[in-house]
Amino acid sequence: MILRRNNSDKCRRLPFALLLAAATGFLLLHAGCSTPTITNTSRNIVEQLLISSAVERCMYQIDFSMYRDAKVFADYSNLAPQVDKNYVQGCFELYLAKAGAIVVKEEKEAAYTMQLISGTLATSSSQVLIGTPELPIPLPNTDLSFAIPEIAIFKRVTRRGYGKFSLTVLDTPSRKPVRTIDGVSNMSEFINWTILLIPFSSRNMEMDQSEFEDTQYYLFE
């Protein structure tokens, strides 16, 4: 009589062992290499800084000094398509206030009506990679997969914020143009670098704690 060893149990255990080994490898790889991106707002912090920096730089370029002590009405009807119009409005009035202008709520009270237009207010991104991208590998006979992490010899991820504004100043009673400013534009930039697996970043805008500007105005009756 020839006794034969039944290998059916061993064969059934083999796929499970392979699956366990693959899952362990997946966890080990991602525990050391993955960097999660977590944001609780519609735009992450870098995108918000890109937009706000571009807006502020554009407003800084406009000279409002000639409207000191003048009553002005800000017309924002042309900003309706812009998602960030509320910040643009606040920043615009901030720079008017710094120049000493008086922003009124009713147009009939104003000597000047300022119509602000935003031609561009958005972010863009681009990427250059020298190395191997993340490679997903499916496990045979399962719906599962694991991924070999990206290996970057050189990587550059560039994000930019763009702002472009125009301004029409009207004499409120007559509606005649007093001044037009066309094509005030600026750009902000944030770059993530990886060179020989070492990550770092560069930017042309402030992100750290810095000294703020405090301007006080004294009113005399």
Rank of each mutant, 00 (worst) to 15 (best):
E109C: 01
A97R: 05
A111C: 01
A122S: 11
C33H: 04
V72I: 11
L28K: 01
I195N: 01
G119P: 07
L219C: 12
P136E: 02
R175F: 10
S125W: 03
G25W: 01
P177E: 14
Y76N: 07
A99F: 01
P140D: 06
Y112R: 08
L144E: 07
I195Q: 01
T120G: 04
A31W: 07
A97C: 10
K164N: 15
S8F: 13
Q127H: 13
N6H: 12
L135G: 02
P149D: 11
V157H: 08
N192R: 06
L27E: 06
Y95L: 03
Q61I: 05
E47T: 01
M205N: 02
E106I: 11
S124M: 07
V88I: 14
C11D: 07
N78W: 10
T172C: 06
N186S: 15
S124Q: 08
A101S: 13
F64Y: 14
I62G: 07
F154N: 10
A80E: 09
R13L: 09
F200L: 08
E47C: 02
I148C: 03
N141P: 01
I181V: 15
F146L: 11
A110H: 06
G131I: 06
T35V: 13
P15I: 14
Y67G: 08
R156T: 11
A22L: 14
D63H: 06
W193S: 01
T41Y: 09
E206I: 12
L18R: 00
A70M: 06
A147E: 00
E213Y: 06
V178F: 15
F154D: 05
T158S: 00
T37H: 12
M207L: 10
S210R: 02
S174G: 10
S145H: 00
P149E: 10
P133F: 03
Y67N: 08
Q89M: 08
P36E: 09
R175E: 12
I130R: 14
G25D: 04
L129G: 03
M1W: 09
T180A: 14
S52K: 02
L167G: 07
L167R: 04
L20A: 15
S185M: 09
R203N: 05
T39F: 07
L49W: 00
Q216V: 10
